[in-house]
Nucleic acid binder design. Structure first.
Lengths: 229, 229
DNA sequence: CGACTCGTTGAGACAACTCAATGGGTGTGG
DNA sequence: CCACACCCATTGAGTTGTCTCAACGAGTCG
């Protein structure tokens, strides 16, 4: 409802966990709150990592272009997530492009600024390490999934992960908030577009999900988890 | 040649990069050098992360058991690599089991010790962050590979990665030092055992690799890189 | 009312998987 | 030192799940 959110409501998310008030204050003062329209890009794959973002509201899609020029969706990020953290902390070019999928607000630090703050405040460093560690772990899990699960199980896993990352509770189930097309799911699972469509169609007939245009509502997470296993 | 390597030769690898001498000294003093026989395990999947390892010599295989009980190889680690870093820094159970594939020596810190050192020495923290960041990045790359490359390309990529991680220069090519079986390659690529055997057989006929029992020598990395692309 | 994007469905092809049988190394124990 | 068991690898034949290609349907936007 507030167009300009109150300060206090911003001092949450990955970088702020377990900070004492003073440090949180300093961190927040250094940040700029930027607004992005749906479709606006936060940064491009290959860019030098000049800024770090933490999503306050809305959601962001991370995509990557392979050498053959095909685009693939890596993941979505929602409120509290750090976008571009690995690249900024490691001073590597961004390995992906970040795009807002809906009107999105993000706290924003310049790379030099955040690196400096980290040097001065070990607690911030610790949060950074935790976040990057989480990301590494998620990727290991996803990698393992790719090799030892079948297509249906992978689609189920991705749906559940999306629910966790950008899910929004609705009357009868959890809706995936970001406009997630079949193509996105296809790219995140390594399953072809058409097969995803068929699998989701089947699940809708069984009442596990409800489908719409660029819209997926998960009705029965339990059953999905079973399929994912 | 030295059975007991000299101190100086140990103060290298992931955690020691860019440390001033004093800090390196402290870090090294806190470490224990442990020897592992081929087949010995450094830690088990699911264990509490009580120790951090940095490989000094030899090599280590990281494997993971999925819910169905099948074992899959995640990756190999060679000299200078930090084993178990994500788990230790994040205080998560180890997500994989680490086994020495040949006689291996590793520097070894207790979790509380290394976390304490990191708190006291930001430079060590920074190295930790860099290492975890690298790992995250590698995983993202591998994930992308899985979704947008075909089987041959994936096998080629994994071979090249193995060369980089545990390769050893020989007279006519680079040998993959760890006993890497077809099964290992199969699990790292998500390609069936038999298909891997056929692909490698084909490459041997073309002179790209030379094969032996649990042994792969890469003769023509350039051509492999081409196939991987 | 087009033009566009997103989604569904069907039919056919083919690459990779499964299953089964065989062949060599390696190491161990009598 | 031989014989046996075990592990790793190869190869063939048959099957199938997934991809490809093509056509159509439906919602959305200007």
């Amino acid at each position: 409802m507030d167009q300009v959110p109150r300060r206090a409501s911003l001092a949450h998310g990955a970088l702020f966990t377990n900070l004492d008030e003073g440090t949180a204050e300093i961190l927040l003062d250094a940040a700029t709150l930027r607004q992005f329209a749906a479709g606006a890009t936060l940064f491009h794959q290959g860019d030098a990592p000049s800024q770090l973002f933490q999503v306050s509201s809305g959601s962001v899609r991370l995509t990557r272009v392979n050498p053959e020029g095909e685009q693939t969706t890596l993941r979505f990020m929602g409120a509290g997530d750090l976008v571009g953290c690995v690249a900024v902390f490691r001073r590597f070019p961004f390995p992906a492009t970040a795009t807002a999928t809906e009107p999105t607000a993000a706290l924003c630090w310049s790379a030099v600024q955040i690196l400096d703050l980290m040097r001065r405040h070990p607690a911030i460093s610790a949060n950074a390490l935790d976040t990057v560690g989480d990301r590494a772990r998620e990727m290991v899990d996803r990698l393992a999934e790719m090799t030892d699960k079948g297509t249906e199980a992978r689609v189920a896993s991705v749906l559940l992960r999306l629910v966790g990352q950008v899910g929004r509770n609705g009357p009868k189930g959890v809706e995936i908030a970001s406009p997630a097309t079949r193509k996105d799911v296809s790219e995140m699972t390594g399953v072809s577009y058409f097969t995803v469509s068929r699998i989701l169609g089947g699940w809708q007939r069984q009442g596990l999900v409800r489908l719409g245009r660029a819209r997926i509502v998960v009705l029965d997470p339990g059953r999905l988890a079973q399929i994912a296993a």
